[in-house]
Design a protein around this nucleic acid. Structure first.
Length: 799
RNA sequence: GCGGGUAUGGCGGAAUUGGCAGACGCGCUAGAUUCAGGUUCUAGUGGGGGCAACUUCGUGGAGGUUCAAGUCCUCUUACCCGCACCA
């Protein structure tokens, strides 16, 4: 009889749900295990096979942990605020609330149909008032602690989405949502002072177990650099031009200065700048360029010399020209640099173009041809001359600068403060009131949640204004401090707000007194293992670590780091090897696979298709192979015997060992391959003992829970297999009595000989030499060397 | 430019970390079952040579270390990912 997954799978899903086997219990009697997967954005398209792969890794682990006797928290929820829903609402006229509810319902049905062992009693939805109330609460705590500020500055702005974007959301100069070019626009925006946590976010990486490239990407994103600030005197102006450099030791080689087109000193001293018209038109030309044009396309240097202001090199005393050029960015360092053309490629190009002096201060290169950026002996550098070690010369120069009061050592980070507002409807309202008398006043905690008002029109204003600005009843309010007339902030929080702390809410999702009970946080946190996509490493992962560090600093959570371990899964590509996309028409709908082959087949295939961390293309035929495997598993009960089958003993113990360790190392593909090999062996033997079959079912159960549970019931198993005890192996039984050992002659494999496992050297050599084939190779030769690696190889070197 | 990674049959991928390369699955070939499609079963399947036992070559490329290299070292090529005029 063929296995009828269409009735069996829903049957067990229903029984598990009724028995609440996947509900996490908070209690000290057992060890806890918190496995976290990134909660989905409930898009209208429904689930993608990528979701299946993303969740299957820790799904398998969580099921194993339950069988190992842990209290397991394996939750799921929905990160539902965001632009796609809002845009869909604008297009269809449906309210975002209704769209979200519909999509969540669809996702829930789909996730349940695949049989994921999520704790459905703890589902969260970031757009739920009872949830975003606490997102606002944490925001206010940050406000209270000086981590929230407003500033008018050049910001990343997407003209198509009509929103301000954070640095993280505009990587590569493209909008993260619609992929159109981001422009720089001067706007007043809200910031979270994430840079105040740069050092903690960097140091914290030492305390956690992240896969190396995740760790590295975080380090690069934070982008710490060590250097010095130097204040350059300006001619005729009683103000210093402050710069940041990583190479203060090259100060004697500074022959000009460059400041960013947006540098404030320009407007401040416009009267003194004789060619201000020229400066102004250059600035306008720069402003028109997109970030992409400015940083990616135009690599040849442009700029304008400021006529009327010069700088003084503080170590050489020489007067040097000052330029504005767009290769210097206002957003990094101080927006001004000292140019050392001899030892910096960009400064070199600029100097060549504008015919400026190039002074060598480090020996070793040929500065008539190109900038020399390597180490070498210091020359033309006064008190630094003769030093050959970069570290020494930098230290000596910094000491000099500090002594003379010209500058000081310092650090810079590439990471920028987090632009924390969107001019859109479908997000958490920022709980701040603007009062003409009191300024920015927080909404009192007891008035949270500050609810989104009902509106008819979700279109943002032409001038980048939030749709909420049109709702008078929302905007006009009383100041919580003085009671006078005031106006509410109408921007909402960015998409990443709700996901910055959701893992804490899972610990205690229905609490209406706190975002979670401290005791429960203490029990469950930190997350023991977090798996997600690589694309979130420089966004969500940074943001949520920041929020958690902050909550730790104000005593709300028990550890600084939220995630003890972080891994990622690789993409599933289309069968054409390209990224799945609607336009390519290579998208696989997981529910189609469930319908045709069953959830277990889908689950096994997704885990078997390749290395978990790598991208692998979908292959319809290979899905059938997994289906065949499960059919063969189902047929095992037909050859079941009461007593154990001796020939299978070592194979089963080896499988327990391998499957157990492979799951821990995320080598799911080889774990399944091992079970396939085992079933091939069982087929050859032609029978399997009942207890042995149960072990097999337990090992397969995390991958294919439905079919294994069904077989278990059919052969008279008691209770749920899903929460039965994980099998243990006996090391002694994983070893066979004899081992086939390879025999090489001069490094070439010539024969395979069966010898007793772990047998002594002399005996092994004797047995090998007794082999007819080996003997023929040794005949008439001189044996120079004999190598024996127990249970692995014998190598005879002959002449 | 900087940082990280990958390269193994027709395809996805294994290889106990220096020890018989190609586990496992797909695909393919032949045979059996079937009216047929599908399914299932059996055998085979890295390339070249040979009826065969066997032989030879083989892990992107070139060197090297070693009794032994997919694995270690040096150089090199191609591709992928992230960041990027970061001072």
């Amino acid at each position: 009889m063929r296995y009828d997954f269409r009735t069996v799978e829903p049957k067990w899903q229903k029984r598990w749900e009724e028995a609440k086997v996947f509900e996490a219990k908070t209690g000290k009697d057992k060890k806890k295990y918190y496995a976290l997967v990134e909660f989905p954005y409930p898009s209208g398209a429904g689930m993608h096979v990528g979701h299946i792969k993303a969740y299957s890794g820790l799904e398998v682990l969580s099921r194993k942990r339950r069988m190992e006797g842990y209290n397991v928290l394996f939750p799921i929820g929905f990160d539902a605020f965001g632009l796609p829903t809002e845009n869909y609402a604008i297009k269809t006229g449906m309210h975002p609330r209704a769209v979200t509810d519909k999509n969540i319902e669809k996702f829930t049905q789909q996730l349940k149909r695949v049989g994921f062992s999520f704790d459905w009693s703890r589902v969260i939805d970031t757009t739920d008032e009872d949830y975003y109330r606490w997102t606002q609460w944490i925001f206010l705590k940050m406000f209270e602690n000086g981590l929230v500020f407003r500033d008018t500055a050049l910001v990343n702005y997407c003209p198509s989405c009509r929103v301000v974007l954070s640095n993280e959301d505009s990587q590569g100069g493209k909008c993260d949502i619609c992929h159109s070019d981001v422009i720089q626009k001067s706007k007043t925006v809200w910031y979270l002072r994430i840079t105040a946590y740069a050092e903690k976010l960097l140091k914290g990486l030492d305390e956690v177990d992240y896969l190396p490239n995740i760790r590295q990407q975080q380090i690069n994103w934070i982008g710490k650099s060590q250097g010095a600030f130097v204040n350059f005197g300006l001619t005729g102006i009683d103000e210093k031009l402050r710069i940041y450099t990583t190479r203060p030791d090259t100060l004697f080689g500074v022959t000009f200065m460059v400041i960013a087109p947006e540098h404030p000193i320009l407007d401040k001293y416009r009267d003194r700048i004789k060619n201000f018209d020229q400066v102004e038109s250059y600035r306008e030309a720069c402003a028109r360029k997109t970030e992409f044009e400015r940083t990616q396309l135009v690599k040849d240097k442009t700029g304008v010399r400021i006529d009327g202001i010069s700088a003084i090199n503080p170590v050489s005393g020489k007067e040097i020209p000052v330029f504005i050029a767009d290769y210097v960015m206002m957003g990094y360092g101080t927006g001004a640099i000292m140019a050392v053309p001899a030892h910096d490629g960009r400064d070199y190009d600029f100097a060549k173009k504008f015919g400026l002096d190039i002074v060598e201060v480090i020996k070793g290169g040929d500065i008539s041809r190109e900038a020399y950026t390597e180490d070498g002996e210091m020359v033309n550098s006064g008190f630094l001359n003769g030093l050959t070690n970069k570290k020494d010369s930098i230290a000596k120069m910094v000491a000099y600068l500090e002594e003379k009061g010209i500058g000081e050592g310092g650090v810079q980070y590439k990471m920028k403060d987090w632009a924390f507002n969107r001019q859109r409807y479908w997000g958490e309202p920022i709980p701040i009131v603007h009062c003409p008398h009191c300024g920015m006043v927080p909404v009192p905690y007891e008035e949270l949640p500050l609810r989104l008002p009902k509106v008819e029109n979700f279109e943002p204003g032409e001038d980048g204004q939030s749709p909420l600005a049109k709702v008078d009843s929302f905007v006009n309010c009383k100041c919580p401090k003085c009671g006078g007339d005031a106006k509410r902030e109408t921007d909402t929080m960015p998409q990443w707000a709700g996901s910055s702390w959701y893992f804490l809410r899972y610990c205690d999702p229905h609490n209406d007194k706190a975002f979670a009970d401290p005791e429960k946080i203490k029990y469950w946190m930190p997350v023991d293992w977090y798996n997600g996509g690589m694309e979130h490493v420089t966004r969500h992962l940074i943001y949520s670590r920041f929020w958690h560090h902050f909550l730790y600093d104000i005593g709300e959570v028990s550890t600084p780091e939220p995630y003890a371990k972080r891994t990622y899964q690789g993409l599933i590509l289309g069968s054409d090897g390209e990224k799945m996309s609607k336009s390519r028409g290579n998208v696989v709908d997981p529910l189609d696979i469930v319908k045709d082959y069953g959830a277990d087949t889908l689950r096994v295939y997704v885990m078997f298709m390749g290395d978990y961390g790598s991208a692998a293309p979908w292959n319809d035929s290979s899905v059938k192979g997994c289906r065949r495997f499960l059919e063969r598993v189902f047929a095992l009960k037909d050859i079941m015997t009461e007593g154990p089958v001796k020939e299978l003993e070592s194979g089963i113990h080896k499988a327990i060992k391998k499957v157990s360790s492979d799951i821990e190392e995320m080598k799911f593909n080889t774990a399944i391959a091992c079970l396939m090999t085992l079933i091939n062996d069982i087929g050859k033997v032609g029978k399997i003992g009942k207890e042995q079959l149960i072990i097999f079912l337990k090992l397969l159960s995390p991958f294919a829970p439905h079919i294994t549970e069904e077989i278990y019931e059919q052969i008279g198993g008691e209770g749920f297999l899903t929460v039965s005890e994980w099998p243990e192996y006996d090391e002694a039984k994983t070893v066979d009595e004899t081992v086939a050992i390879g025999v090489q002659i001069n490094g070439k494999a010539r024969a395979s000989v069966d010898i007793p496992t772990g047998c002594a050297k002399e005996e092994a050599f004797a047995l090998a030499k007794a082999n007819e084939k080996v003997a023929s190779y040794l005949a008439g030769k001189t044996l120079v060397k004999e190598i024996y690696v127990p249970n692995k190889i014998i190598n005879f070197v002959v002449k």
